[in-house]
Design a protein around this nucleic acid. Structure first.
Lengths: 123, 123
DNA sequence: CCGATATTTCTACATGACGTAAAAGTATTG
DNA sequence: CAATACTTTTACGTCATGTAGAAATATCGG
């Protein structure tokens, strides 16, 4: 899967958090508004990044409207799950990894994990 | 965390699978022996990669012995767990992600996951 | 319909990671 | 000490990414 650079990541975060599709200008403004990094990127920069994200399949664009409108192709969670599966690989040591991983999560998470597992199992 | 290139990954795999520390020459031979890629890398290539892996903290080297001997600093599983946590991030959507992730694992794995969870909970 | 303006596409460059290895330096050993 | 083994230094090509100017194209007010 495609890992993301810092800017790509920021753009995806904005798209994931937005209910509406966003334009390159929307994104540039939102990026400039973030934290202390009032960098004011050029719109072309944002467009380049969007094109790359589109090629990676992470973003869909509406070419029908004039300022093209961009949306995330899949949810943030689905994307993260993809990353998890990438990290886990097809290796045979999945269970060993999961065991260690679970050993490191919080008690709270252990509880909800269990709840999730229960609901899955019932299906 | 540091993600690995193809060669770096191959080297780590060999180190992870080896009980003994390995030398650059050991690794070069082992790499040449892998599958159909009888590339016969130069030893300096292997040494460069090892130096980079050392800088990344993934590999430790014994400088005392003359042909330096290299070992993986942490287990493959621990490394993978690190990747998992990187992928999950510190975000608040961990549970949503875990829910989706678990929804996608096999029944077998669900069972062992449950077993693992049980043992953890008892602690 | 036209010129001004907005938007997109094309092209470009710097940086850093990675694969790759020759050249040069240093240690070992007969 | 000379030959050999090993390590460090230096180097280059490629690719991903951040960044944006130039060029092309579409839109809009008049």
């Amino acid at each position: 899967m495609a890992s993301l650079g810092d800017l790509e990541r920021s753009v995806m975060d904005l798209l994931w958090d937005s209910a509406e599709p966003l334009t390159a200008n929307d994104l540039r403004d939102a990026l400039a508004a973030r934290g202390t990094d009032a960098k004011e990127l050029a719109v072309t920069t944002v467009l380049t990044v969007l094109a790359r994200l589109e090629k990676k399949g992470l973003v869909a664009r509406e070419r029908s409207t004039r300022p093209h409108r961009y949306t995330a192709s899949s949810s943030r969670e689905d994307h993260t799950v993809g990353l998890l599966n990438d990290a886990l690989g097809t290796a045979q040591d999945r269970e060993a990894v999961l065991a260690r991983f679970i050993g490191g999560i919080s008690a709270d998470e252990a509880v909800s994990l269990r709840a999730i597992l229960d609901s899955v199992k019932t299906v």
